[in-house]
């Protein structure tokens, strides 16, 4: 190809992809790339959670729950929530009473969670920071969890799979706050699948983290 045509072709391509051309120009002007490499400010090790939450989905009752858990963090991104236990106090919504009164439905068909226990693997691929009012920097981590749950319901024990996601906001090296949303997929009689979602806000105490 003759040089004039090459130049023309480059011109056409540059016109067609102005952002690419701009990026190339920029990299010629200031070659190289820059990253901020920092030591992680917050690292988890032995974590003890104390939280309160709700079981919000069931139309017949709402569960007000407390939860305690222990998690061991193998690395900054991988952890095992070795144990978690939840106790739920049920509050009727009134719908059950209405059904019983108006339609004579047998109360035993309504399944309620009394407590549950489980264990999960936790993966934290996200770690970041937020500027708060341009005055403070808040560090956070987001994570996904997958594990098994045993639910004690008013009709007996039920096994389940817990799938969840959460967000942790660090206060300091020892204290962080967690927001966990977990869906417990329960295999009930029938067989049928029952979803028991939970939403918890916890205070996490961290022990033994290195600097």
């Amino acid at each position: 190809m003759r040089p004039a045509r090459v130049v023309m072709l480059i011109g056409i391509l540059a016109g067609a992809f102005p952002s690419a051309a701009l990026a190339q120009y920029e990299s010629l002007e200031n070659p190289g790339s820059v990253s901020a490499v920092q030591e992680r400010l917050y690292r988890m090790n032995h974590e003890l959670d104390l939280g309160v939450g709700v079981l919000p989905l069931d139309a017949f009752y709402k569960g007000l729950a407390v939860q305690v858990g222990y998690t061991y963090h193998f690395t900054d991104s991988f952890a095992w929530q070795i144990a978690r236990g939840t106790y739920s106090y049920s509050v009727d919504t009134g719908l059950r009473e209405q059904l019983e009164r108006d339609f004579g439905v047998d109360p035993t068909v309504f399944e309620e969670v009394e407590w549950m226990a489980g264990s999960d693997l936790v993966w934290s691929p996200f770690y970041g920071k937020l500027a708060v009012m341009n005055q403070r920097v808040v560090h956070f981590a987001a994570f996904l969890s997958l594990g098994g749950t045993v639910l004690k319901m008013n009709v007996g024990f039920r096994p389940g799979i817990a799938v969840g996601a959460g967000l942790r906001v660090f206060q300091n090296k020892w204290v962080s706050f967690r927001l966990d949303g977990v869906d417990n997929v329960v295999i009930a009689d029938g067989p049928r699948v029952l979803h028991v979602p939970t939403l918890f806000l916890s205070t996490a105490l961290n022990f033994g983290a290195t600097e």
């Binding site: 790339s33 820059v34 990253s35 901020a36 920092q38 030591e39 900054d76 770690y127």
Partner: peptide
Amino acid sequence: LKDDEVAFRF
């Protein structure tokens, strides 16, 4: 990057 480091691309 070391285990205890995190990078933010500038």
